[in-house]
Design a binder for these strands. Structure first.
Lengths: 147, 147
DNA sequence: CTTGACCTTCCCATGGTTGGAACCCTTAGA
DNA sequence: TCTAAGGGTTCCAACCATGGGAAGGTCAAG
């Protein structure tokens, strides 16, 4: 199977398959004499696993952990569960942050007439620069890949 | 005021102030003979506005829109409200996505014994590669700046 | 043999932010 | 006056996951 076929079969783009190999998430596969990568069913299986984990919001590091557990026949399910629940905690944390933002903006917007006059409580709030506590980066949820 | 003082006064790091100037979000400020940027209170005011918008999850593009409206005395509050509510919609969309992920993982984890045996329904699910519909990038919520 | 569809590697861009290097400027103390 | 510390300046690189594209090799069908 060529990389393109493996991509179709797994739902992971050829670009990403090469990337995952490059960063060591998956092992380099065999090559034809001319250098083409060749994939077996087992590789596609692994790629599907990765895709599923990715779709559930795991980052490459976490996916690596899960892959290692998957391939370790003497794993303890407790370890898998822990990784999964840690991820849930992270997701919940992020959800709370986004909800706080949405709630704040909704509140400000509800105070805004939304007509052709310039007065706007939203801008007034921003202008005051409400001493936020967050100093770090804001979230990026613009689905970077969806351009 | 030097850039470091403006950074402390606004809560925006000196690095980011230079970056915002570079990408045109804020106009270049005056310089001393030796090239130091000099900031006035009004500039700090603008920086605080930016910080507040950023903390509420606006991306630079949206912040630019809001800044333009802020500085346009003949703006219509409806325009501000529209930008704000579009952002809320995007936030809600993202929240739904994250909640779907969390729910799925919580469900799988609830089916996992979490003991020292290797059998794990979480891995079983991932292994099946549940034909997800999402092809794009997963969210990145690891607070990129918090390294 | 040509054509077109694939593969290869390499570089570039995104978004917001941080880090560092290499260098210049200013100020305070010895 | 010299010097050290702590600013400032620019430029380059990195993060993460992904897509885009160029330049060139390979393969199968017509």
């Amino acid at each position: 199977m060529t990389i393109g076929e493996a991509a179709k079969a797994s739902g992971v783009s050829a670009k990403m398959i090469r990337y995952y190999e490059q960063i060591g998430l998956i092992a380099p596969v065999a090559r034809t004499e001319s250098g083409y990568r060749i994939y077996a069913e087992a590789d596609v299986h692994t790629l599907r696993f990765i895709r599923r984990a990715r779709d559930l919001g795991f980052m490459v590091e976490g996916i690596g952990d899960l892959l290692a557990l998957w391939q370790d026949r003497s794993r303890h399910s407790a370890d898998v569960k822990r990784v999964a629940l840690e991820h849930v905690t992270a997701l919940e944390q992020k959800i709370r942050e986004l909800e706080a933002m949405a709630a704040t903006i909704r509140h400000l917007a509800s105070c805004c007439a939304g007509d052709d006059r310039p007065d706007c409580p939203i801008l007034d709030d921003f202008e005051q620069g409400e001493p936020g506590t967050k100093t770090g980066a804001p979230p990026r949820f613009g689905a970077p890949g969806a351009r």
